[in-house]
């Protein structure tokens, strides 16, 4: 049965061995994410937020439980299929931008299309189009070191969209940006979410993110503590801010 869910996790458990101790970073997470949703995962450091994020992104295999992306069980995929998934289905945005320093903005955005086997000219055309969308049409040939943090993150967003993914995974996308730039990045993500229908899953500490999220998932001690819907949010905002502060 085709579902409206784009990501589903079932009984997700991840254990790490530290010395002779076993630490359970995820302790049975069941999470369903709808197609086209803007979802924020919140939680203090060590809550298992990053582990969940890695599991959804196919960056790390869970100890048990499964992650389904478009109804595909990720545990069943071999290396080449996983690479295909990372290339085509998921776009990644990182806290530290992670542009390839030796390449220009355009080359960075074009790189995923190269991995996808797109002809060079088409890739360049696509790259220019995307950089225009994120408002960097004038800086195609700048190296990352010649761009500000906000601009680098815009390039990274353009890059994440290169192969038209259905999901964008953003790991603390505003974590290294100042307040104003962070707001701009969040607005850009929301705009892409609305206009292109791409599902956005974001791990964040940033309270500004809550305003644009459809749902907010709170992770505590490897479990989902609660899920807030956007429509219930306005009344709770005071409470959440307290929680956010406690979380730091």
């Amino acid at each position: 049965m085709a579902s409206q869910y784009i990501v589903r996790t079932k009984g997700l458990i991840k254990e790490y061995t530290m010395g002779d101790q076993t630490v359970r970073a995820l302790n049975g997470v069941d999470l369903d994410i709808y197609e086209g949703e803007y979802i924020s995962i919140m939680g203090p450091s060590g809550s298992g937020k990053s582990t969940l994020f890695n599991a959804i992104g196919g960056l790390d295999r869970p100890t048990s439980g499964s992650v389904f992306i478009n109804d595909v069980d990720m545990a069943q995929l071999d290396a080449q299929e996983l690479a295909y998934l990372r290339c085509h289905t998921i776009g990644y945005i990182f806290q530290t931008f992670n542009l390839i320093p030796v390449m220009t903005a355009l080359e960075n955005v074009t790189l995923p299309t190269v991995f996808a086997g797109m002809p060079t000219d088409d890739g360049i055309e696509r790259g220019i189009e995307l950089l225009n969308i994120v408002g960097l049409g004038e800086r195609l040939h700048h190296k990352p070191s010649e761009l500000s943090g906000g601009q680098q993150q815009r390039v990274a967003i353009a890059r994440s969209l290169a192969n038209n993914p259905s999901i964008i995974l953003a790991d603390e996308p505003t974590g290294n940006l100042d307040l104003k730039t962070g707001t701009e990045i969040i607005e850009l993500l929301k705009r892409l979410n609305k206009e292109q229908g791409v599902t956005i899953i974001s791990a964040t500490h940033d309270l500004k993110m809550l305003d644009v999220s459809d749902r907010i998932v709170y992770i505590r001690d490897g479990k989902i503590a609660k899920i807030d819907e956007r429509k219930d949010l306005d009344i709770q905002i005071g409470e959440m801010e307290r929680e956010g502060e406690l979380g730091h």
């Binding site: 085709a2 478009n70 109804d71 299929e81 085509h88 991995f115 996808a116 038209n164």
Partner: peptide, 13 residues
């Protein structure tokens, strides 16, 4: 076009 139909996955080239 999203790159592949639901329930299936391609192989990276």
């Amino acid at each position: 076009q999203r790159t592949h139909p639901r329930g299936s996955i391609g192989r990276q080239i």
